[in-house]
Structure formats: C-alpha cells, structure tokens
C-alpha cells in the first residue's frame, strides 16, 4: 500500500514536469504560428518557480484559500486515476474496475474548487469565468458523453484498463479506427475541455484579465498552475486510453499524448474565438450528429 503512494508521488512529479513542458511548447508553437519569437519552452518552469518564491500571498477569504488545494487535489486525482501505462506497477496508477465514471466526476472536483475560489475573491470577472466555463461544459460534455457511453456499451465495461486492453492488437483495433465518428466527437469535445481556441472564451485573456485566477497571485497561483498542468496531462492520458489504444510502455505514452497535445495546439493556433452560446450551439450540433452515427450503430448492434 505504501509503495503505491510513493509511486503516486512519482507520477505526480513526472506528470507535473511533463505538463509544464507541454505548456511551454504550446506557448512557443502558438507564438511561432503568430509570427512571434515566443518564450522559451521552459518558461512555465520559470514562472512556477517565480510564483513559489514570492514572499506574500494575498487572501480574500477561506474559500479563496482552499480553492488552490481543491484545484491541485483535482489535478492529482485525475492524473492518478487514469492508467498511463497499463499493466505497469507504477504507471497504471490507482485505476480500478469502475474508474471511467469516477474520472468523469472527479474531473469536476478541481474545476469546482477553482470556481469557488474565484467567486470568493469578490471580483465579478472571476465569477463570470466559471459561469462561462460551466455553460461551455454543458456544451462539450454532450458529444463527450456520447463517445464515452458509446465506448462503454461497445466494450461492455466502465473500466479504463479493460477499455485499453480491448484495443490491443494493432493500430486498427484502436477506437479511433473502430469507432471513427465517436472519436471525432470525442476529440472535438476535447478541444472544448482544454478551452482551446475556438472555445477559449472561458479564460478569454483579452477581455477579462485571466479568468478565474484574476485575484490569485504567488503561492496560490502556483498551486492553480500546478493543478492545471497535472489536470491537462491527466486528460491527455484519458483520451489516449479512450481512443488511441492506451500505452504499453512509457515511450508510447509520451508519443501518443504528445500527438494529442499537438492536435490541440495546432487547432488553437489558427482559430478565432466563439462566444459562449455559439460554442454551446456548436457542440450540440455538429459533433453530436457525428457521434450519434456510431452511437446508433452500437445501439442497433
């Protein structure tokens, strides 16, 4: 039991390093796409260290204080619940027989924490962001659920481990190719989940400062930051497990998550932004229709 916790810590540290790196790469790529030089890929490490080294942290209240913990907890939780490398003692994490539904709900935990902290700051803009986020969430979750439920029914399981092992045996066994329409719906939903560009109104850096973390600074912000990075990695892994056949070794995991990451980043780089209701409407139409093709196929089968 105790070594599990140790492994967990290892995964968290590794995941954090990877997540920060991905963030840096993303900033770099986006900058290049925009014709800027952009910061170094290690910029996020620097930012994190800078934040941690700040001397004072301003607090607006109890919930404001607790929110970063919740955020971090959410990030750690999601990362540790998804199997990064199946059948690996360390990297299969705490995944268990019914983890798919758990992950879906646990993902909310961090967001909820962040949203509450933002609200407690007393800044109207930071409360605005969660409402946008929740609305958008109601948007992208529909196609996402279509693909998740479709896969669960198709493979008769709610366990990510089982889902991954069902996709073994060649690239064509991947759900990406087995259920292409479900996958398309899922990946479009993922763009919303990452608040990637057409759906980035939640954070909307230009209009409302920086969204939920408006009032956050120093240590608190560093926790938010860390949580977010971990959360991001967790979700990449989740999508890898769902659609790309999981990973049997660490390298495969890196390659696949990086591929998904690149997909997100490139789309982010080239799109303008939807308003919330436009995003919601978009999610409820095209990806849903696409996803339903496979969904109904599974239903009939």
């Amino acid at each position: 039991m105790w070594y599990k916790i140790l492994y967990g810590l290892l995964v968290v540290v590794g995941g954090l390093a990877y997540g920060l790196l991905l963030g840096g790469i993303s900033r770099k790529i986006t900058a290049r796409l925009h014709g800027r030089r952009g910061p170094t890929v290690f910029q996020n490490y620097i930012d994190l260290i800078k934040l941690i080294r700040k001397k004072t942290a301003i607090s607006h209240g109890t919930m404001f204080f607790l929110a970063p913990m919740f955020r971090l907890l959410g990030g750690i939780g999601v990362l540790l619940l998804v199997p990064i490398v199946t059948k690996s003692a360390i990297l299969s994490n705490f995944s268990f027989g019914g983890d798919l539904i758990v992950v879906l709900y646990f993902m909310v935990f961090g967001c909820l924490g962040m949203a509450l902290g933002a609200a407690d700051s007393g800044h109207p803009h930071s409360a605005l962001a969660p409402t946008r986020g929740l609305a958008q969430m109601a948007g992208y979750e529909l196609p996402f659920l279509i693909s998740v439920i479709g896969l669960a029914i198709a493979h008769n399981t709610v366990s990510l481990g089982t889902l991954v092992s069902a996709q073994q045996g060649g690239i064509l066994h991947w759900n990406l190719f087995q259920y292409p329409f479900l996958s398309i719906a899922g990946f479009i939903a993922m763009l919303g989940m990452y608040m990637a560009y057409p759906f980035s109104v939640v954070m909307a850096p230009q209009e409302i400062a920086v969204g939920p973390p408006t009032e956050y600074s120093s240590t608190f912000l560093s926790f938010m930051f860390t949580g977010r990075s971990l959360f991001g990695v967790g979700k990449y892994v989740l999508f890898m497990d769902l659609f790309l056949g999981g990973a049997t070794n660490l390298l495969e995991a890196f390659v696949k998550t990086f591929a998904i990451f690149l997909f997100v980043v490139f789309i982010t780089g080239v799109f303008p932004r939807y308003r919330t209701e436009q995003a919601v409407k978009f999610f409820w139409t095209y990806p849903v229709v696409i996803g339903l093709i496979d969904f109904i196929r599974i239903f009939i089968k």
């Binding site: 004072t56 560093s222 926790f223």
Partner: peptide
C-alpha cells in the same frame, strides 16, 4: 498532499478586505 505542499512553500498570507480587488 496538497496541504502539505502548501505549507512547504510557506508564503506569508495577507488577508485583504472584500472590496480590495483589482
């Protein structure tokens, strides 16, 4: 774990009034 990490970092926390926002 999150809480322990937080106290490891150990920044001085300053409470501000509710209208003290950016």
């Amino acid at each position: 774990i999150a809480l322990v990490l937080f106290f490891l970092v150990k920044a001085k926390i300053r409470k501000v009034g509710q209208l003290d926002i950016g």
